[in-house]
Amino acid sequence: MGTRQVGNAALPLMNTVIMKGVPILQQLQIEECLLRTSSHNWCIINDGTDKPNIVMGISGKAGELVEITPVLQDKIPVIRRFTGGGTVIVDDGTIFVSFICNKSDVPDVQPYPRPIMSWSSLIYSKVFHGTSADFKLRENDYVFGVRKFGGNAQSITKNRWIHHTSFLWDYKTRNMSYLKVPKRAPEYRLARDHLDFICPMKDYISRSDFINKTIDATKTHFALSSTELPSNFQFTPTSKLLSRVELEAAANNESRG
């Protein structure tokens, strides 16, 4: 908490942590602990994760969202995270950016998913300004034109919220085959398969430029302070790895349905 005078304005403070290759389950668990136990604002950036993982929203059903047989054969971890949103497959080509904010420090942002996404889209519109990218927020996604490159999810508590995004800087075509086309898809998807629906950021911006510009754009809202993560959390996070038994049961339920 707290503010710092910047020019004529007193901006709220935000701790920033930049990581590289941290396992996505570990990142999600850290973020939930910060949301629930910290009183500070945080910006967490993780440049890639160590290996492919499928990450579902808190209410996601594996049987409806994941091609379970090849996932089990290829030993792709499936995680249920603590936030809402859709299903993604992430790997070393994914860049993760998370904002954890006190509602009182962003009083102009109504604490609901759409206003939060609209607020964050203003940050990323600055990031892509000056590039050839046709950046937009469409429904719940960040897109270039009509193709998605960033998926968003939130969790909103009494006094705080988290908004996190998985950005596809690049992706492996094979990995997309592990995901089913969800029954509830955004209208603009128009029943396109994954490879016609998504696109990489690498055609428009380098990884380092994206991270540096994201930090610079965040400075228009917060006074940033680079810091280390707390080392000991007194909290048990809820994001978890699904077991083989759970995945097999989901597959059986789907086949019966």
Rank of each mutant, 00 (worst) to 15 (best):
G2K: 09
T3V: 13
P12D: 02
T16G: 02
P23G: 10
I24M: 07
Q26K: 13
L34V: 04
L34F: 08
S38D: 09
H40V: 05
C43I: 11
D50C: 08
K51R: 15
N53I: 10
I54R: 06
V55W: 07
S59A: 15
S59T: 15
S59H: 15
K61H: 11
G63Y: 05
L65C: 02
V66W: 06
V66K: 10
D74F: 08
I79M: 03
R80K: 15
F82D: 08
I89L: 07
D91R: 03
D92F: 05
I95L: 14
V97F: 09
S98A: 15
F99A: 04
I100G: 08
S104P: 00
P107Q: 04
D108F: 15
V109K: 06
Y112H: 13
Y112T: 12
P115H: 03
I116F: 07
W119S: 08
I123D: 01
K136H: 13
L137Q: 07
E139T: 03
N140S: 13
V146M: 11
R147G: 00
I156K: 10
H163M: 09
H164C: 03
F167K: 06
Y178K: 06
K180G: 05
E187A: 13
Y188D: 07
R192Y: 08
L195M: 07
L195Q: 12
D196V: 02
F197P: 11
M201W: 01
M201C: 09
K202D: 14
S208I: 10
T220Y: 10
S226M: 12
T227Q: 05
S239W: 02
L241H: 09
V245N: 12
E254C: 05
